[in-house]
Design a binder for these strands. Structure first.
Lengths: 129, 129
DNA sequence: GATACTACTATCCTAAAGGATACCGGTATC
DNA sequence: GATACCGGTATCCTTTAGGATAGTAGTATC
């Protein structure tokens, strides 16, 4: 007996909504990959920050990683790096206009994270009791 | 001269909205980490799929990775693995209830991906002309 | 002169992610 | 018997992410 696939052939073999969605999500993940890019953007949402301020805000990022991630974000036009001619020189990072396009994404990720944490916590409680 | 930080001390030193947001986003990224989890969930949004169907839908995922990612998703209660007693045995994967909580997240990622791709494409075009 | 802050960079390392290729037992078809 | 599909595993490998630690030049403060 031939095992039938669950998908009609016209669905799996044409590039339609589902495949477009998969591709779009993959595109997004490709740009925002890794542990740090979105949290960094969130950190800057209240205004420009200096290098060490960002490091303190994130708590556990090393300067090497921070430096690399900021460079990535600058290249992708999410962040503007500004060198102020003070003494000593200070460098501020601020969100570029394009970062605003991520507001909805970030908001959903934030909400989901809060709900998920609540769920995990309540699961653990009911497992104990 | 002492360089002043851009942040008032009461903002950086208290755990307030911004830090909560950073934490929540980091929590979400921790659960949904990697290249594949969200695309896999998207692939199953049209209904249950079998192992090889999923592999074909994603196009370039190897069975080893797929197997591991599906196990992760099952552990986190996003996916249900069902073994059908057909001959030969077939295995179907379908979204568990909890996956629905990701609908908004996925939708925003999808929309952003589409817009971002359009932006990149138009940037390239204007660079050529 | 010692110390500390600025914004980093350099070096070394580990762990994890991910991929290539081959293979497995089982069943079915040709 | 050869081939092909099913749902995976096993083995090996490369790449990347990320972290630990130390150090840099410049300026200012004590």
């Amino acid at each position: 007996m031939e095992t039938e696939t669950l998908i009609p052939k016209d669905r799996i073999h044409t590039p339609e909504a589902c495949n477009v969605a998969i591709g779009a999500v993959r595109d997004t993940l490709y740009v925002l990959n890794g542990k740090w890019k979105l949290p960094l953007i969130v950190a800057m949402q209240n205004g420009p920050l200096r290098f060490n301020d960002i490091q303190r805000a994130l708590g556990d990022i090393t300067p090497k990683i921070l430096s690399k991630e900021l460079r990535d974000l600058e290249l992708n036009e999410f962040v503007i790096r500004r060198v102020e001619a003070t003494k000593p020189v200070t460098v501020t990072y601020e969100l570029a206009e394009y970062s605003k396009s991520l507001n909805s994404v970030i908001n959903e990720l934030r909400i989901w994270g809060i709900q998920h944490k609540a769920r995990i916590t309540s699961n653990r409680r009911s497992a104990v009791s």
